[in-house]
Amino acid sequence: MNRFSYLRAGDVAEAAREAAADPAARVIAGGTNLIDLMKYDVERPSRLIDITRLPGLRAIEETADGGLSIGALASNTEVARHPEVERRYPLLSSTILAGATPQLRNAASTGGNLLQRTRCYYFYDPGTPCNKREPGTGCPAIGGVNRIHAVLGASEHCIATHPSDMCVALAALEAVVRVSGADGERGIPFADFHRLPGDAPERDTNLRQGEIVTAVELPPNSFGQHHTYLKLRDRHSYAFALVSVAAGIEMDGDRIGRVRFALGGVAHKPWRDPEAEALLQGRPASAEGFAAAAEHVLRGAIGHKHNAFKIELARRAIVRALGQAAAGTPQSQTDKRIQ
């Protein structure tokens, strides 16, 4: 761990200004990921800007258009257990409860969940090369140990995955990330918030220097009835997803109306494929239809030595999850039997 200075920001503007002034500064909220990375010497911030005392960033409240705004500092537990989230956005609640542990969820913030970094073994181990940690050093996961790595949207520079469960739901829910920076405030559609690795895997998101996440806005459309989060992992709790699927459907009789689904564990960002969703629209809910959509999502998938199984697993998980959502029988996050 390196030596760093510490600033408790008084307001969002100060936090953003200070963060913009020093590229090596890091914003800290729950710290459940950043502190680990600092202990590992992966993150070596010159300065920590503590935003946990900022006023107004913890609220969960109705938006003008009938959606819900979740403050960046709301803890994962507060979001998952919020009555309005449980009632209107059960998919979001479910994904949060599928991740981590109660202790971590109590500490972890909404904004931090978006900004958590990959669990790639090499990224975490400064004794090895890693393009994400040290650009230009190479990606030993390619040709190395890559069981947990990406099969979609990866590049020759990086095959890391984004580890969040919550973000998979936010992708399916088409949330908007509210950010505040030197140039003022803006909203970033969730699909544009995280990046694919390309030739700059060190950049996880499209946040600009100094921009602070202030809230996540959920549109009114909430898939309250037909939704599921199916997470497949190496043990039944406290493990990152090998493959996960968040799905929401608006059923129109026995036909599929609007449908959104996203995959976790397979790419550098939550993976959504609007074309595949369009294939389902207006069709009856059927295993064949789901399989065709899954096939479409995975058409460009590339497996490596240890993770090729994820392609078939993702295909099956999509079919199962869409089935669960269509039937209105969401996957329980406490009963480990898969429905």
Partner: peptide, 16 residues
Amino acid sequence: LPDHNLGRFMNHNLAE
């Protein structure tokens, strides 16, 4: 999990 290219165990924490 050993990385035989590096000759090193890679999942050296209780998360992985």
